[in-house]
Design a protein around this nucleic acid. Structure first.
Lengths: 241, 241
DNA sequence: TAATCAGTTTGATATATGTCAAAATTCATG
DNA sequence: CATGAATTTTGACATATATCAAACTGATTA
């Protein structure tokens, strides 16, 4: 199995810098792996609340999250902030800035986290040589588009409880995709931040949590969440109108 | 001026197939232009209501809209439809499908329209040879991400009138970018479709239009819109809370 | 021109979420 | 472990939008 061998080696080659999201599905030769690995040797740590980048910063790199999690938020002229997304380990952050050469939102660590910097010029140069990497990069960007549009659907037509259900199920999937429990996890963000993301006030988010618990759909204690009835949560979504 | 000459030639080379969005900012040699032009010689027409692609169709190509306009909409399991975007001439449609190899939403012509098909494999191959094309493709995808996130902001925290103001100003910008009047234009979509896109009911959209007219911000007669007070519309956005 | 039909506007009422306030819980720090 | 700060929960009330219904407008067809 050519593929599994090279995948295995690739993991090793990239081990100093978690490029899961970028590497795993890509079939590369040993030499190519070396180039891939050279792409980013830097790994930097950020404490809770630290900025990975700020709005207006020049865009130069994408960042692969090695551990921890971040939120991205946009700043309105009047000072309001609104969360545009949550990124967890294994995911790529910074895709929004390619089109403008400057970051249009800011990224803040939700907990102590480590990221690997991926200079975008190098990434483009390498992906010109490696079609499979090129396609994968395109897929990552496309997935971001799809995910955003999914959120739009959610925000556009759903009521508070449906939104929260979608949010929880989405988190659950992402945890599962990374080998963690999909029914029990720790939220890294506040009710306020969830609300900002879902277009709700924190009180509404809190009430929705309480209602879910009341209906035995989940169990919540502050930020510790357990999904007790996945089918139930699923059926909540899209039974409306 | 090397650039303007080549840009001029490029326009000519691509004239049989409007690749504005894809070509204009790219600096190419004559030979490269030829390759670019060969990318897509097909130009197909669609009547109002025709499907460009349907949800589930295999992804093979992007489409450059040569004339007319489309809407993309997602289908919920229960049969509901929700508009996820409007695309006008000069724009690229189909970016969402790259990550799944299958279309996740459907694209419908809002009026009689023409599109050029851009086989994605060919586009990737060419962009491996032409760094400026590669970067531009990345920018287009990134812009889509930014635009979607912009809509999320809008849907998340804004009230009906603010949403409609953002929508109108966004349309205005896109018309202006294509050399059309930015204050007077014909809407190609119904109140229903606008509402679906903005997460509002058609009655709410209609009321917002009426209120804007009442305040002398715009003049509306059915689908003919004139923006009378651009600064006023701008100030409506983000003066909240 | 008249008739029909889809789309739009307007009105009255219901409901979900926002707002404001206070209590309860969790978290951080000494 | 105790204290104070931050976050979360809960309650009462206000308000924006949805819902239902009807009238109106403009476009299409006979």
């Amino acid at each position: 199995m050519q593929r599994s061998v090279s995948t295995f080696r690739l993991k090793a080659a990239c081990s100093n810098c978690n490029l899961r999201e970028l590497c795993l599905p890509v079939d590369l030769s040993i030499d190519e792996m070396q180039q891939m690995d050279d792409l980013s040797r830097l790994k930097r740590g950020y404490a809770r609340g630290d900025y990975l980048y700020r709005s207006g910063d020049k865009f130069q790199s994408l960042f692969a999250i090695h551990s921890g999690s971040f939120k991205t938020q946009a700043l309105h002229e009047d000072g309001r902030e609104q969360v545009t997304g949550f990124q967890m380990y294994g995911e790529i952050i910074g895709l929004d800035a390619i089109c403008t050469d400057h970051h249009t939102c800011e990224a803040v660590a939700l907990e102590n986290s480590e990221v690997c910097e991926l200079p975008f010029n190098k990434l483009e140069a390498l992906s010109r040589k490696l079609p499979s990497l090129q396609r994968h990069l395109h897929k990552i960007m496309s997935r971001e588009i799809v995910r955003d549009q999914g959120i739009m659907l959610l925000l556009g037509s759903m009521r508070a409880e449906e939104r929260l259900a979608v949010f929880l199920l989405n988190l659950s999937q992402r945890f599962a995709a990374r080998g963690l429990s999909q029914t029990q996890f720790q939220l890294r963000m506040s009710r306020q931040e969830i609300g900002s993301y879902l277009g709700l006030k924190l009180e509404t988010v809190s009430r929705a949590f309480s209602n879910f618990q009341e209906s035995d759909l989940i169990s919540v204690k502050a930020r510790a969440v357990e999904l007790l009835d996945l089918p139930g949560l699923h059926s909540l979504v899209g039974k409306q109108l």
